[in-house]
Design a binder for these strands. Sequence first.
RNA 1: GCCCUUGUAGCUCAGCUGGUAGAGCAAUUGAUUUGUAAUCAAUAGGUCCGCGGUUCGAAUCCGUGCGGGGGCACCA
Length: 636
Amino acid sequence: MPTITLPDGKNIRFLDKITGLQIAEKISNSLAKQAIVISVDGVLKDLDYVIDKDCSIKIFTSKNEEGLQTIRHDTAHILAMAVQELFPGTQVTIGPVIENGFYYDFARKEPFTKEDLIKIENKMREIVDRNEITKREIWDRNKAVNHFKKKGEIYKAELIRAIPEDEEVSIYYHGQWHDLCRGPHLLSTGKIGKYFKLMKVSGAYWRGDSKNEMLQRIYGTSWATQKDLDEYLKRIEESEKRDHRKLGKEMDLFHFREESPGTVFWHEKGWTLFQKLINYMRNKQNNAGYKEVNTPEILDRELWEKSGHWEKFGEHMYTSTTPDEKVFAIKPMNCPGHIQVFNQGLKSYRDLPLRISEFGKVHRYEPSGSLHGLLRVRGFTQDDAHIFCTEDQITSECLIVTNLILDIYKELGFENVILKYSDRPDLRVGSDSIWEKAELALLDAVKASKLEYTVNKGQGAFYGPKIEFVLRDAIGRDWQCGTLQVDLNLPSRLEASYVDKDGIKKVPVMLHRALFGSLERFIGILIEHYAGKFPFWISPLQTVVIPVTEDFNDYASEVSKKIRHVGISSIADTKKHNLNYKIRDHSQAKIPLLLICGKKEVDSNSVTIRRLDSNDHQNMNLDVFLQTFSALNKVS
RNA sequence: GCCCUUGUAGCUCAGCUGGUAGAGCAAUUGAUUUGUAAUCAAUAGGUCCGCGGUUCGAAUCCGUGCGGGGGCACCA
């Protein structure tokens, strides 16, 4: 006689054992129809799970995250079922739910083609129509292993063997087809609806290990309604439109070429953007007490051996052998160079904290498959700085850095920032006691920032723990940009020291920090965030002056020149095209302001402003225009 | 690096089962002089990614290298 507690606190007493579905039926018909899965004392169960003792329950529908995830999980099963019906001999492995959908990994010699995906999707709809009944059974572990082995399902057998001894081995049936699975599942295949779509096939290593064989992964998406599915597909389309590689080409910002994969050829407009960001940052950093320096791009191998990079990072480093057989490395980081700057002259505790910054171009040999437009390159410019300080200054310096980062992100249009804190990795230099100290000081700063943060165990740099700054863009995607790392190892390896109050030489703590991280990458993110429509002050070409007819070419050129003189970029478009053509042309080039000049403007010494994506025309006296807009120009 | 996929004019793309290439836009020239998202016409433009093979004949088929794309792994 179980007493069931509902989410609202009400108790219902049943005379006999009962299932989730029966409870839903008792509550309302519509709930029974919509019910997908039930939690019993916080554990998700199938709707036909038999409840025979007191407990509290909650019934989920597709409107809940739990319900939607169950739908996706079921869709993954139906995918596996469809694949095995169409392609006998294909082995199934795992098929989890992921953000917006699911995937399933298969072992099969022949690759799945695009046409196969269509066939599979049709088969899946057929299986939904067949409405196969779901059944759950608990099997003996050895029986299960042998069963799947006999069927030729080597991977499944291995998965079962890996299940901890104290856990049950549950098998789910959908009709005749069955699979090892923790569940829960919907009561039949008809319940998932048909709001799914197979998205793509790709390779994926068995158990995520690159030493293992590669399986074929089919990605899919699955939703509660057709509307949700359509909206999701629309969202993907929208983000493709923002792709910085596409916009970079269209807007003539940069290009890549075969001779040097993973490095950027910046065009005039892209480079203007680049320089604007550097100037903006330089100004901010000067105000925050940084000293900008510049250090060599190529340094003797010995230095990198001493710093530990050669051993820990060597496979990602470019090297160069000179005619006299000396080996130099092209810097993958700026830190050793900055320590050498610090090492010039005797430093006192009074010099600390010493903040050395550099817009340093570094090269890292990234795996070919990881390259991705501006977002992952082999040659890039860091807005790098190293702060030499005492242990007592760590937390306060970290806070200054955090505030600087947040200020800059905000001005560039990113309001949402979270922190990721990472502690010691397996592969590292330095003693445990030193790590202990560094981790605690950095964590203090994280907590003091009052920002939301996550902890990533074992993800720190080889020389110290770190914080990463993650910002959220206009369409909700997260990007890791800034980083702040405590380093208690490198300074001593490269013999940095300062004279303390007591006259004794001590090793300073070094903080590594980058705000954008990589300028290249940050520009990629900016392009996607703004969909190429940059705010006026960042835009690489801010104004185009358009004469209504050729008669006004001279006036347009003159206006354009005056605009350039107040530090706003401008060209006059005196080409032989009509007004409409030019407006369309420059609107597509995403120029923030178009200035139209005709008889009216000449007579009144004015311009008519047309803003991007707006049909409003605003006439303004030229001098007023120059004054108003140069004031908006934070950097030129 | 691994799996799949892809590479044709400056750009976007067409070119079926092998018979040495085509469109739109851009460019150039000419006409048009236009008030807020494409005026009209003519002209020019190609090592069909590189190398090798099959074939009488390869943009097309096969092999290989390089690059791009989607993932996986990597991201100190």
